[in-house]
Structures are given as C-alpha cells and as structure tokens.
C-alpha cells in the first residue's frame, strides 16, 4: 500500500485518504447532553481497542477504526452487508466543551466518548433569596 515509485509521500497519502473515504463505513451514533457534558456512543463492531483511533484537531473530533475479524484462508463470499473494513466519522465540537478532558471507552464494539463542559459552563444553581 506504499505509493508508486516516484510519487511523493504527500501524493500517496492523499490517494490513500481518498480511497479510505470511498470505502469507509459511517458508524451509527447516539449523542446526548447532560449536565456534565456531551456523551457520544458509536457502534463499531469488529474494532479492537488497538485498532481504534480518536483525534481532536482544532474543533474537530475524528473517530476511526479498523475491522479485524478472523477469516479462514481462501474464504469465498456468499453474502456481504459489510463491504468495507474501515469506520470513519467526525464531529464539530463547540467552544464550551473541554476537548482536553475527553474520556473514551470501547466495549463489545460500542465506543463511548464523554466530552465534559468547561468548568465555567457547568450549570450553576442560582440561589434566590427572599426579601
């Protein structure tokens, strides 16, 4: 999968990315917000922890994963709903979220990402004094 000889690294990387975009699966997600922040859950069956990659670049959160399943040698397809081996999806974060304290866990192919709100954006209860 390295580029053709004579091709610069930049070019081969660009081609690779384009190929991935065509062949990647957009994982189904649930996203909700509670007082602490945002919680995202993504279905990424077939992805082991070592094949999961998460990244925050400026305000974009990207999630990628590779499916690795054991297949016998010389297997021929009979039926295929899943036709790619790569998951990819990204999300735009908003400013009140603390991207430095993102917590992620992966269990049975379900990725859970917790993005806390910055301390000053946590809701504060305002006391109402009676006169």
């Amino acid at each position: 999968m390295t580029g053709k000889p004579g091709m610069t690294k930049q070019e081969s990387r660009g081609l690779k990315q384009r190929r991935d975009a065509e062949h990647s699966i957009r994982p189904a997600v649930d996203i909700f917000e509670n007082q602490a922040g945002i919680v995202l859950r993504a279905d990424m069956p077939g992805v082991a922890r070592e094949h999961l990659n998460m990244r925050v670049d400026h305000d974009t959160l990207s999630i990628e994963g590779e499916i690795s399943i054991s297949m016998p040698e010389g297997m021929e397809p009979i039926h295929a709903d899943v036709r790619a081996t790569h998951y990819r999806r990204s999300f735009l974060l908003s400013r009140e979220l603390d991207s430095g304290r993102i917590d992620a866990s992966l269990k049975d192919g379900v990725l859970t990402v917790r993005i806390p709100k910055l301390a000053e954006h946590q809701p504060r209860k305002i006391e109402i004094r009676t006169a």
């Binding site: 297949m71 016998p72 040698e73 297997m75 021929e76 397809p77």
Partner: peptide
Amino acid sequence: SAARGSFPPINVGSTPERVDVYLFAAGL
C-alpha cells in the same frame, strides 16, 4: 436476505471445510 441497513449487518463466507457467518452487532 433483509434489506440493506437492517440490523445487524451480516457477512457469510465459505470454504470447502465450513461456512462462516459474521454478525456485526455491537453491544449485545
């Protein structure tokens, strides 16, 4: 076979010795 997009997606492959079925169903 179910319509595309049905849960869970399934792949099936065969070899002379056996048939392998894969259900992509996270969090079961």
